[in-house]
Design a protein around this nucleic acid. Structure first.
Lengths: 242, 242
DNA sequence: GAGTTCTTATTTGTGTACAAATAACCGACG
DNA sequence: CGTCGGTTATTTGTACACAAATAAGAACTC
């Protein structure tokens, strides 16, 4: 079951009641909350209520708090006694360092423990190409964001190095919100076009089995994308100036 | 206050009672437990009792559990209902991937956001050199382990990239136990000598302001060290074969 | 004696009541 | 009118009691 399915489900409580172990229940709550934060269902600055969330999920505050605490360790939430649990703001200066690191990690993804290409991988990227074509025809912020997340997870599968996968995922979820928060509506079609171009290029490189090329393409696009962000929003736009 | 001070304190409850905020109390418990795991006060496979720890720290299970849960997310603990909270075993095959990643990250530490050299940095590494000389004169497992930890933290300060620091730290604490668990008593003086040589070389490179050289030296030693581990213990030695 | 099933002790997970801390509100006072 | 101080509402943090799950041991059966 993918994150999309988890989130699309209107009733998380149903899912949780079907889970058999505490670990499964935690995983569901964690995934749902992280997805909502990254899809801007909870925009930066939003105050979450433990009581309300526990009620929605049909559990008490205790197990819910574990999910919130891990998300706080991930840097997506900030809890303070007497104040509340707030979704963190995206700070361009902090994200600059994250991006600098992600650039290098992407290169490693194409170089360390490369996964032997197989039919499954090809199918995965073909599916993404299809979704990219549909997105170009009808640009949409939420669809764009979802494809961005799914494409990231596909790219991660180019390496079999698990720690690298884990580290990259944490950093990805730290940064992926910034696109949704900063891209102006008028720029959406252009950004969609660039992103879908990247998908096509990388899917092609993957099909040829050249993962290092795929990684270089991704690195280049990540770098250019962040430069567009910096130049497009030199002044505040809901950002902290740092 | 360093981790050493935190751990050396025989009465963690005193420290906790002096802490003013919940975040401070969490930080203390987290640091103490992580240190005990990495210094093999709790060797791999040890079962921790929430009740006993909470009693020792003078708190209830609730705040203690937050520290345990983060340590579980770090991969140092594993909690299971009805079973207990166990210190994870070190798996050589898994650690091979971690080491492969750490090799590359060390190189990044010398390249990304280099910290302007100053007097403080020089003093820090001079202190480590001094401790290394004393260690060579009297090899000791615990002193070795402590110097290893402190040297890591000093090395981290060569970069100002915070996400890189955070990622490197998590991976370091995932792997540093393996030395204490695998080094035979007869090999200790030799390993100490090699490690202290590394410190001298890197401190020298840092003194000259050549952080990339320092990073390359560290990378080389990390690689050689892991190779010694692999060749010295091809069969099980309390390790999972994987 | 071996195997199986039930019992029981132990441990973490969950629910809930209360404590602590913060911030907003309100009123008194300069 | 502004400012300072106290009050109160709200929120997370903590303590504790109980539920759920696991594993070890006892007892029973074949």
């Amino acid at each position: 079951m993918t994150d999309q399915d988890v989130t699309a489900s209107s009733d998380v409580a149903d899912l949780l009641s079907q889970a058999s172990s505490a670990q499964e229940r935690f995983q569901i709550m964690y995934s749902v909350l992280r997805d909502r934060i990254c899809m801007l269902v909870y925009p930066p600055g939003t105050q979450l209520s433990e009581e309300a969330l526990a009620s929605e999920f049909g559990v008490s505050r205790s197990p819910l708090r574990k999910a919130l605490q891990i998300l706080e360790a991930d840097g997506l939430l900030l809890s303070q006694q007497g104040v509340g649990t707030l979704v963190t703001e995206v700070d361009l200066q902090e994200l600059a360092q994250v991006y600098e690191l992600r650039l290098e990690l992407n290169e490693l993804t194409g170089r360390l423990c490369p996964r032997p290409p197989d039919r499954e991988l090809e199918t995965l990227f073909n599916g993404l190409k299809l979704r990219a074509e549909r997105l170009i025809a009808a640009p949409d912020r939420a669809v764009f964001a979802r494809l961005n997340i799914d494409f990231f997870h596909a790219f991660q599968q180019l390496t079999l190095n698990v720690p690298l996968q884990d580290v990259s995922e944490k950093l990805f979820y730290k940064t992926c919100r910034i696109w949704l928060t900063l891209i102006q509506e008028k720029d959406l079609p252009q950004e969609v076009a660039i992103f879908c171009g990247e998908i096509m290029e990388i899917a092609n490189a993957v099909r040829l089995g050249d993962f290092q090329a795929a990684a270089l393409i991704r690195r280049a696009h990540l770098s250019m994308g962040f430069n567009r962000l910096k130049t497009a929003t030199p002044q505040s736009s809901g950002l902290e100036s740092g």
